[in-house]
Design a binder for these strands. Structure first.
Length: 603
DNA sequence: CGGACAAGCTGA
DNA sequence: CAGCTTGTCCGG
């Protein structure tokens, strides 16, 4: 490591006897404390705020992070020396940001420090020899590219703003203009998008480090940094802006607690650094809309970047045809590349006996059974399985009332007269080779290009019992739009939506290429029901949730409401994050397992 | 989190 | 009462 560890402003050591003491957060789950350690003189130059170290704690050697330098240890404790310097970690600014994030998502600081730390130890960081000035922008701009660049530059004049670009716009057109003003942190929704962007930026003359491999280069400074949500925590010492691509995408939120969101981390980080934060999305979240102005393209340009959407009203379709409507059948028979999407795995999610007509039930708990595969019935509530036999008349044949991907695959294969591949989250990633594929929404991530994307039962998405259902439904249409291309692009395909709710705002938004169609309704709906962003939520669950929520209720904090329990889960609701997070920080947690998820998505 | 140590349970 | 499980405490 380079010997730049201590700042010249450190207080002078008056005597040789007084040794440097640093505060270390150990990487130990369930231990929300920091401990002080002596810095052995041999390690002096390598230790600074953010350094990853090994410490001996309670007889164990564990990883930890230096979070404060030259601290005054509490009286009466015997300090141990740091055992080892593992390598480089987050910058002091990011270390400070983890403290804020620990409050904001009510979680342990160590998880957030881990997010800001490279996967593999980085013992040394390359010396920067790169020219600071990036190359001038290339002349390659399409008609939409030009418009996008203008809007992006306008957006960068605000501390936080949103740029609304339709699904078919290449993120490169958004990111590149900013990269020519200095190093930029780019947070992409997936590693694939990040990697693709990295390659093309580099080709365009932009020095860029792609995470996670490029972490040492990013730490060295002077380059743009591209990565998935972890990029929100990536070092970029001289960042001129932070960009979050597909800001609406749920992939930006960590699923495990603390459930930090890359968008919110990016916004706070940019605010602290005094640089602009640009949020980019075809359908900006309502949260983003509250953070700053939303910049849009010309209406005609925006619309041309949304796909052609064919809405099939299932109320006037032949009911005997089931989920394979006339338009879909025609597309499959025409030899087009078709992706069929139904978010139901297995053969069927609801079956009825052909003899007595009764719905298949669980013999143990009475819940409706599903048919995960041929010859098995399974109860999703208690896990009991049995062969395909009716409990009442003992027949062994059932009608498949709510068909799943596996059964539809068979039916489509007959229809297509050629192999049809099934794609779900649990199927092999490689195979998407057949002309016709059927799958859950995972298929939209695995197939790069198709002529038709068909949603066989879109109402399942629109009517899902979650407050974000309508928004999530539109995100599927955005993804489909990318697979078939925008209506304005050559060779554009079509999105087929089978529904009994053809007037639904999520569908109109896609049909018209105008996401505000949904926003306006959704904002009002959520305000009426007290859901985000009108109010903010935290979900509390786990064996110790009851004790903790009792304490929260006892504390009777102003503006804080406790809802539940439902399924062993409580919801804490407050008007703002300040109120919510202060409440969670103020009430001491009981021992035992407790999950606190701030801003839960699945409610 | 996980080790240390104490208190509680069981069986010869 | 050894030998084991279960609970509580605490870390620099």
């Amino acid at each position: 490591m380079t010997p730049t560890g201590r700042s010249p402003q450190s207080p002078p050591l008056d005597t040789a006897a007084r040794q440097r003491v640093v505060r270390v957060v150990p990487d130990v789950r369930g231990l929300a404390r920091a401990f002080d350690y002596l810095v052995p003189p041999a390690l002096d130059a390598d230790v600074r705020v953010g350094t990853v170290v090994r410490i001996v704690l309670h007889g164990r050697r564990v990883r930890g992070w230096v979070v404060a330098d030259d601290v005054e240890p509490p009286p009466g404790v015997t300090l141990r020396p740091l055992a080892k310097v593992t390598g480089w970690g987050p910058t002091p600014e990011e270390v400070a940001l983890t403290e804020w994030a620990a409050w904001r998502w009510a979680g342990p600081r160590s998880s957030l420090l881990a997010a800001a730390t490279p996967e593999r130890a980085v013992p040394s960081v390359p010396v920067t020899t790169r020219p600071r000035s990036p190359s001038p922008p290339t002349a390659a701009t399409t008609t939409t590219g030009l418009a996008v660049a203008d809007v992006v530059r306008a957006a960068a004049a605000h501390p936080v703003s949103t740029v609304r670009v339709p699904p078919a716009v290449d993120p490169l057109a958004v990111v590149e203009p900013l990269c020519h003003t200095g190093p930029v942190v780019v947070v992409a929704p997936t590693h694939e998008v990040a990697a693709g962007l990295g390659v093309r930026l580099r080709r365009g003359g932009v020095p860029v480090a792609v995470l996670p491999r490029g972490w040492p280069d990013a730490r060295a400074g002077g380059v743009s940094v591209v990565g998935a949500r972890l990029a929100a925590w990536a070092p970029c010492p001289e960042a001129a802006a932070i960009v979050v691509l597909d800001e609406h995408d749920e992939a930006h939120q960590e699923e495990r607690t603390p459930t930090w969101h890359a968008r919110d981390v990016a916004v706070e980080r940019a605010r602290r650094a005094g640089v602009p934060c640009v949020l980019v999305s075809p359908m900006p979240s309502l949260e983003a809309g509250q953070m700053g102005p939303v910049h849009v393209l010309a209406r005609r340009v925006e619309r041309s970047g949304w796909p052609i959407v064919d809405v099939v009203d299932q109320r006037s379709e032949d009911p005997t045809k089931g989920l394979l409507g006339e338009r879909l059948v025609a597309a499959v028979r025409d030899g087009r590349r078709v992706v069929c999407v139904v978010n139901r795995t297995g053969r069927a999610r609801l079956v009825a006996c052909v003899g007595c007509g009764r719905v298949g039930e669980c013999e143990r708990c009475g819940a409706a059974v599903v048919q995960p595969g041929e010859g098995v019935l399974e109860c999703r509530r208690c896990g009991t399985t049995r062969p395909v036999v009716c409990l009442h008349c003992h027949r062994t044949r059932f009608k498949l009332l709510r068909r799943g991907v596996s059964r539809l695959r068979e039916e489509l294969e007959v229809l297509a007269g050629e192999p049809v591949v099934e794609i779900t989250a649990s199927t092999d990633a490689a195979q998407a080779s057949s002309r016709v594929v059927v799958g859950t929404e995972a298929a939209l991530h695995r197939v790069e290009r198709a002529d038709v994307v068909a949603f066989l039962d879109f109402d399942q998405e629109l009517l899902a019992p979650r407050y974000r259902a309508a928004t999530e439904a539109l995100t599927l249409l955005v993804r489909a739009g990318r697979v078939v291309g925008g209506r304005g692009s050559p060779g554009a395909g079509r999105v087929l939506v089978q529904t009994r709710l053809p007037q639904h705002e999520a569908i109109s938004a896609a049909v018209l290429g105008d996401p505000t169609r949904l926003d306006d309704v959704e904002r009002e709906r959520r305000a009426m029901l007290g859901f985000p962003p009108a109010k903010v939520l935290a979900e509390i669950s786990g064996p110790s949730a009851e004790t903790y929520t009792e304490r929260l209720a006892e504390a009777a904090l102003d503006g804080v409401e406790l809802l539940g329990p439902a399924d062993g889960r409580w919801l804490l609701r407050a008007p703002t994050h300040t109120v919510l997070c202060d409440a969670l920080a103020a009430v001491p947690r009981p021992p035992g397992r407790l999950r606190v998820a701030v801003d839960p998505l699945r409610v």
